[in-house]
Write a protein that binds this DNA or RNA. Structure first.
Lengths: 208, 208
DNA sequence: CCTGATCCTGACCAAATGGTCAATAATTTG
DNA sequence: CAAATTATTGACCATTTGGTCAGGATCAGG
């Protein structure tokens, strides 16, 4: 519970990092319950007791991973600004989120796994930090709509749609690839698709 | 492996059904590895050996559930027809898929869990039956585009987007509810949102 | 109401798993 | 370089878990 104030040794930092990287790979591939400490230890090139020397328990590793994840996850949304063209801002957010799915698919799956199972360790963040951030950005989008700079949409569901559409390519990657076959670049195609989708959806109609 | 040709007794049908229902609830809530036969047995009101009297193994229960799932899952897409207005057809599909997320969230999560972990038992279906179905419907959508009846989009990714946007409300339900708070009806709002989204996206632009 | 088939269970087992610990090795530091 | 601290591990343990089995209960049909 209490954070050790003693600063970490070099070897400590390295091994904790190694364990977290290995654990991310394992947890994201087989879920929390489906992953054993032995698997993590082997993936990290350490013995099981050694892993437990650095982390109190399997649960502690998982919790640590999730904590680190949220910052990475919320970053792009935080960067959505009032300045600039609204549609460009929203599109930039979608694009960055898609890049994150492409570059951090394990993180995406870890998150999906957690939420899918009812987010037992994330609920406070979802209903707290995330909710407030969404509220703030929704207000911004609502403002843009009120100013007539983008077409009217429900801001919350607009954000949900960005999450759903981008994370889908990481979380359901096997399905996407199985359906598309080998001669496709899902992420490149998705970028074009999302661009079209949001441009059309947000374009202000001259007269409906 | 071989199907018992002897027809099932009444009690057999009832208990197998009870077990499958209980197992769906448990598996969808905690994943395959996170669920024990004992939990399934208790949820079904049976003893563990009794559960194993009706199913050879925990794996057999899971496999049976997944098999039954695919028909339910692919049904709405199969119903997308060449007749009628293209945009209406696509919208009807999206709406039905959203209803399925609302009415069968456990099934959605079971499926998500499976795909998330690499779809070890579903890959043949994904690359086979599903892929063919998607190919067929993509061709239909491409035809509609060629005829100028809907705006041009990548048909595959259009289908992906429908899956992602609708399943999101079931799979990430805790997140959606945590962000929206208690005074919202996610599915009702989503229906409106999806309607707007696809109408705007698919509307043929007079002159771009 | 007898008999064979179906249904059900307590007791049990082997393997896996999360976690501990005493002892040893390596490293840091005075 | 010696003492103290930190890192590592083999052996071990208690619990959980998937699955078995022999025997008893129940039920359908003649």
């Amino acid at each position: 519970m209490q954070e050790q104030p003693r600063r970490q040794s070099r070897i400590q930092r390295k091994n904790r990092e190694t364990i977290l990287t290995a654990a991310l790979r394992e947890f994201s591939a087989r879920g929390f319950a489906g992953t054993t400490i032995d698997q993590i230890a082997e993936a990290a090139g350490l013995s099981k007791p050694n892993v437990l020397y650095y982390f109190q328990s399997k649960d502690a590793i998982h919790t640590e991973l999730l904590r680190g994840l949220m910052d990475l996850w919320l970053g792009p949304l935080r960067d959505m600004r009032a300045e600039g063209d609204p549609a460009d801002q929203i599109l930039a957010y979608a694009r960055r989120k898609l890049e994150m799915s492409r570059d951090y698919p394990q993180e995406s799956r870890l998150f999906a796994n957690e939420v899918l199972q009812g987010a037992p360790r994330l609920q406070p963040i979802l209903g707290g930090e995330l909710r407030e951030l969404v509220e703030e950005k929704s207000a911004l989008i609502a403002l843009w709509i009120a100013e007539g700079r983008i077409a009217p949409v429900d801001p919350h569901h607009l954000l949900f749609s960005i999450w759903a559409l981008t994370q889908h390519y990481a979380d359901f990657e096997v399905q996407v690839r199985a359906v598309l076959g080998p001669d496709h670049d899902p992420y490149a195609e998705a970028e074009v698709f999302l661009d079209q989708l949001y441009r059309r959806m947000l374009r202000v109609q001259p007269r409906e």
